[in-house]
């Protein structure tokens, strides 16, 4: 590391001013507001200390949301990262027409989540959807999909993965491109098989890219609420009621800004713990 008195601050200045004004300051406001509650009787904000947090702890809805959020993320994050890594490796192969395949596989990146949600809702409709139409004509039973508390969360995992894998693969593909091919050539001379190559060369050199994708993907999925908002309203029977959806509901439906802010503070603490673990696991050894 290099020490220099003023240089680092000058390089940081524009970003920190921007973040300070447009992210940090509003975020502090949100944090403080988690300690307040709007009194409809006096029409004022009243300081309530940790009351917003305590009332969440005693609310079964909160604990259900914690459970759903963790279940969702325990499945979706590893799934997306593994699939994105696989896709990146596939797209890194120098075969004819790879440019075409890359462009196709990256298409879902530009499908916005609301549009994807609307589209999948039509396709997966239990009575009139295309998927059930195909299933029944092949002799299978029609499925309730988003209308079943056993399936809805996994359907959302599927939709978010359809949309997300290409996106995360871009970052990993860029990382793969930086692995010097000389290393592979040397390994091939030593008679290493593909798997050893992957463990010895690809994976270690990809740790930084993987850390980025793991962290960014985790944050994105913990904050995901558009599919629940558009397709299920957190249902059926609260089976897709993630913390972020509860936050939005508290803020914009139930007029509990203080509770929404408290929920976010807790959600961020959960995210920090998880990405802390992820970065430990993916820490480069050198």
């Amino acid at each position: 590391m290099i020490s220099s008195k003023w240089t680092p601050y000058l390089f940081l200045l524009p970003a920190i001013v921007g973040l300070g004004i447009f992210s940090i300051y509003p975020a502090f406001q949100a944090f403080f507001s988690s300690l307040y509650s709007f009194s409809f009787v006096n029409q004022t904000n009243q300081f309530v200390g940790l009351q917003n947090y305590i009332s969440e702890f005693t609310d079964p809805v909160f604990w259900n949301s914690v459970k759903v959020t963790l279940l969702f993320n325990v499945v979706i994050n590893p799934l997306q990262i593994v699939l994105a890594f696989g896709l990146a490796i596939l797209l890194n192969k120098r075969v004819k027409g790879i440019g075409f395949f890359r462009s196709i596989h990256f298409i879902p990146i530009s499908v916005s989540l609301p549009i994807a949600s609307v589209l999948f809702m039509i396709i997966l409709n239990p009575d009139e959807g295309l998927v059930n139409s195909v299933l029944t004509s092949l002799g299978f039973h029609a499925q309730p999909f988003l209308h079943s508390s056993h399936q809805a969360l996994w359907v959302i995992v599927g939709i978010a993965t359809w949309k997300g894998v290409g996106y995360w693969a871009v970052f990993l593909l860029a990382g793969l491109q930086e692995v010097p091919s000389a290393l592979y050539e040397a390994a091939a001379l030593d008679g290493a098989n593909k798997w050893t190559e992957f463990i010895k060369i690809t994976f270690p050199l990809m740790k930084r890219s993987l850390t980025f994708v793991a962290v960014a993907d985790t944050v994105a999925n913990f904050l995901l609420f558009a599919p629940m908002y558009i397709m299920t309203d957190g249902g059926p029977n609260n089976s897709t009621d993630v913390l972020m959806y509860e936050t939005i509901k508290n803020a914009y439906v139930n007029s509990n800004m203080g509770s929404a802010d408290a929920l976010i503070v807790m959600l961020i603490i959960i995210i920090l713990i998880i990405i802390g673990v992820e970065s430990k696991l993916l820490k480069p050894k050198h």
Partner: peptide, 17 residues
């Protein structure tokens, strides 16, 4: 703090922002 900034969802800071 820089890391924290992308964990704060926009919907929550909409009013102060």
């Amino acid at each position: 703090i820089v890391l924290l900034t992308f964990m704060v969802p926009f919907e929550v800071i909409a009013v102060p922002l």
